[in-house]
Amino acid sequence: MAIYHCSTKTVNRSSGRTAVASSAYRAGEKLEDERTGLTHDFTRKDGVAHSEILSNLDIEIDRGELWNLAEKTENRKDARTAREWVIALPDELDADQRKDLAKEFATALVDRYGVIADLAIHEPSKGGNDKNHHAHIMLTTRKAELDPDNKLILTTKADIELSNTKRKSLDMSTTQEEIKAIRTKWADLANHALEKAGHSEKIDHRSYADQNNGLQATIHEGTKVTQLRRQGINTEISRFNDNVTQHNAKHLNQQQQQKESVLQRGLNRVDQGFEQWQKNQESKRLELERQAEIQRQQKLEHQQAERANRKASQDLDQGGMSL
């Protein structure tokens, strides 16, 4: 059964994350962070089925140059340097169909906000049966343009990054409503792809309470039953329908939790792997600094010893000459 998942989060310096490191990890590439001086090498990472940069600009965009530019454009210590969308790709589709669907959604985001998208499609874990095909789509938080020399520049903040106060002054909906619209867009695109591929399965961005689609059919309540309900009088039909509603709500809730748990486990492995890599990188950096300090001290001690030896030799030579 197709799983609905469409969530968004941001890459913030305040949380210790960088857009360069995040992109390298999701795309399984080796990127150098010019701002921090660190090199992030994830070329041995498994499970990256496809990665691609998408934009409306008629130039070829290098992944490393893009995210280093995103980092350089922001001056604040707590700056937001990227926004990420994570979507679950229907297992009912084949690899090419999933790629086309992910690209279509990423392109829709590019068109909507005038930004650049960095798409990475991940496969389910090896040996697993969770079928959690999913995609990470990193967006620049600023609009992308070309300067007079046809070079890439990032300009003003994208609409979705504006505060609700600013959005209200521009007669825009709230950020929450904007995100809801994107989630609806994803459901529409995914359902169209499923239908085009000949599948009857559908996903729905709404909560199950909003969908009101019971797993067990209820009995039609005629005018008399409805009138009695309004008077607070239960009938055999109304009691049956109430029980069905409760049963379906419980079943759907358990089903949704199970599906989300499967997907979340896969996504958690991505985040945990990245966090562990960051810890390892920090340990390596501290060890390199310690070794460099030891070498510096040894070199300093060696230089001091050489100066002492030269001075002692000079003193002996001067003493011999005075005799």
Rank of each mutant, 00 (worst) to 15 (best):
D62S: 05
V11E: 05
S51W: 13
E260C: 01
R167P: 04
Q303F: 09
A312S: 13
V225M: 04
R285Q: 11
G127E: 11
L93C: 02
F274V: 01
Y25V: 03
N56G: 11
F240V: 03
R290I: 04
S207L: 01
T10N: 03
M138S: 11
V262P: 00
Q258V: 07
I3E: 03
V86Q: 12
T165C: 02
R296D: 13
G16H: 11
K299Q: 08
D78A: 12
K284W: 11
I61C: 01
Q97P: 03
I182W: 01
P124M: 15
E145W: 09
R285L: 13
S22M: 08
D242L: 04
K126T: 08
P124K: 11
L146W: 08
Q303A: 06
E289A: 15
E221V: 10
Q295K: 13
E260G: 01
K224Y: 08
A193H: 03
G266M: 02
Q298S: 09
V115I: 15
L263W: 13
R265T: 14
T18C: 07
L139D: 06
Q298F: 05
K143M: 12
L194M: 10
G37T: 09
G214W: 13
L323T: 09
D58K: 15
H5Q: 02
H247L: 13
E195I: 01
A120S: 11
D204E: 07
M1Y: 04
E123S: 15
R265L: 12
E161K: 00
L54D: 04
K202G: 02
L300D: 01
S55C: 09
D315Q: 11
Y25P: 12
D78G: 03
R98Y: 10
I53F: 11
R290P: 02
I116L: 05
